[in-house]
Design a protein around this nucleic acid. Structure first.
Lengths: 349, 349
DNA sequence: TTGAAAGCGTTACCAG
DNA sequence: CTGGTAACGCTTTCAA
């Protein structure tokens, strides 16, 4: 391994190692390592000298070697099982903001779409591929969450299940969401308010968001002494359209509907318009949607804002800070809903 | 390191290593490694025996150790600089499908949103963090692409620049796209067709998509002997609205507009409706949009389909197969446009 | 404040 | 077909 010029990058290996740096700076490998990791107990002068050499040689640590020795990967994984892909625009924003937060904490975000069984999930940790995961599509009784908690592996959920003791999560406060949406409509004078819920298949799979949105609606109805009317159609606009028509027939005096997402709202509008009524003059509509979606329709949707970017960001932030400091207390964040009145709600005639 | 039962997992280290497996199976580490990597030259019986031990001990290879020794990370990175975030829904679909393709080829996809300067980009490779990258937001004269090509680092672009020799990419065929869109409108009888292009700021930054879409429009106009009328407003709907109004005033006989994305189309519709005309009876509209978006508006948008999912998938597929077989020829995929006639185009009155 | 050396868990080459 | 043994590039005691 002898080279003609000891302070030039190694040409044999093709890439500069910590060894080359140490040699060129006339210090030991340990010292370089300390400097790399910002450890104290290094003479100012030495630090500076080594920094210069690092700069000059264009040295970059080998991440796998670091991970192997340091026993952590500096990676976190976002698990988004594509299996029952209910790919509304919603979920997509999560990724970017989670990646942002991860990078801000010096972590790299992996996106994993393959549905993982328990073994494969645990292997993610055992193989040291990832230091922690963000779970999406959380079920009320989520096996993944329970096993991770039992094993003491760090994770954060977007959404949450029944028993969340000892788990960190970020979720919408669906109870408050429906209380707010319904109150808005009731304040306007509506007394018969229907609901296009998440698909029945999702509730059947015990997905937290499906269970909680329906419960939120039912509870809010009860508190306001309204009679609930709901359907749980698939995401397909045509199915939603049919469901909305059923709802309108079932309760002809219905004057408003709440829809779980933007696409559904459009289908509902069509059904309403077909009965000769128009939105918002004769019929009101509240959706759960981001501003981006809400502004696409005509008229723009009055909506409960769904802060996907914030949720993704927070989840990654919580996870990375857990990893930095395991003693950190849990964080369970329920995001308060925010009603944005646009063009689809109004007092009934 | 001596343990009471040599064929039980090591409790001292906390995790099972290839050593434990070798010992428990009564073979050498090399043999286990061969089996792990599906190498030939292993006796059937030995292979089976070792597989069983692996199963029994619940062994999973340490990925960093593998990467270090094998000199590859089995990771690819999707670079999506969030800097000038033109976060239309468009880009978001890319991530999921790219992750899917990566996983299908046994790679992990990293999502990197921090804008990387040249040094940091190269460090990604030098640190062996990633085996290859997918570049998004490609400029006509993309410094990243040029340096990667010069260094011989594997990468694939979504989009492409001026000089793409020796580079693999996936992009829309914007020339054909506008030829198709304009031909459709001309066939219907339109002779004055405006265009809401990508933001001027994007073209100024020399982004391939901005440059090529505008050029596509201008070329198509020339071929069909139409007079071009266009604006390059920011993505903000209000800006688009203003631009559309200007266009309508500039050429009162205009009967159709092409818009770069779904959100823009909605703003255009408002501007049109304000002049007392309605879509599609008095005015036609063609957008570049995915079906998901196109179906949100009323009426649903006649559109050139923008196959984001396919583009992301192909990019990751090309990259991973390049990595597996460096001798593979380049792939430069120009996706042919597909016109989907929905509710916003019709013959002018 | 610094250095030496022992790992970290694999892969890959070379013998046999 | 199998085993021994150097790497791979870094972190982390432990001494000095």
């Amino acid at each position: 391994m002898s080279r003609p010029f000891a302070d030039e990058p190694s040409f044999s290996s093709g890439s500069v190692t910590i060894h080359d740096v140490a040699q060129a700076a006339g210090v030991s490998v340990s010292t370089v390592s300390r400097i790399l990791n910002g450890k104290p107990d290094v003479a100012k002068a030495t630090r500076q000298r080594v920094q210069n050499v690092i700069e000059r040689l264009g040295y970059t640590p080998h991440v796998s070697a670091q991970s192997l020795a340091a026993r952590r990967s500096n990676q976190i994984s976002l698990l988004f099982p594509l299996e029952h892909a209910n790919l509304t625009q919603l979920e997509l924003d999560f990724f970017v903001s989670a990646a942002e937060a991860a990078e801000a904490a010096d972590y790299i975000l992996n996106l994993i779409t393959t549905p993982l069984d328990t073994t494969r999930l645990l292997n993610l940790y055992k193989s040291k591929q990832t230091d922690g995961v963000i779970l999406m599509q959380v079920q009320m009784d989520d096996a993944r969450a329970q096993i991770l908690r039992a094993q003491g592996y760090p994770f954060v959920m977007i959404g949450h299940g029944q028993d969340s003791d000892g788990m960190s999560f970020v979720d919408m406060d669906f109870e408050a969401t429906f209380a707010l949406a319904l109150q808005h409509l009731v304040d306007l004078g509506h007394r018969q308010v229907g609901f296009i819920a998440r698909p029945y298949t999702m509730r059947q799979r015990n997905l937290g968001s499906a269970v909680r949105t329906l419960k939120g609606y039912l509870d809010a109805c009860e508190r306001l002494s309204l009679t609930p009317h709901y359907r749980e159609p698939l995401l397909d606009p045509q199915e939603v359209y049919v469901a909305a028509r059923e709802l309108l027939r079932e309760e002809p005096s219905m004057t408003a509907i709440i829809a779980s997402n933007g696409a559904a709202s459009v289908a509902v509008m069509r059904a309403v318009q077909e009965t000769g009524r128009s939105v918002p003059a004769d019929f009101s509509l509240v959706a759960l949607a981001t501003a981006k979606i809400a502004n696409l329709t005509t008229p723009p949707l009055t909506a409960i804002h769904f802060p996907t970017d914030k949720m993704g960001y927070e989840a990654a932030r919580i996870l990375t800070s857990m990893l930095r400091d395991p003693a950190r207390p849990l964080e369970q964040i329920l995001i308060a809903p925010e009603l944005i009145v646009r063009g689809t709600t109004q007092s009934p005639r």
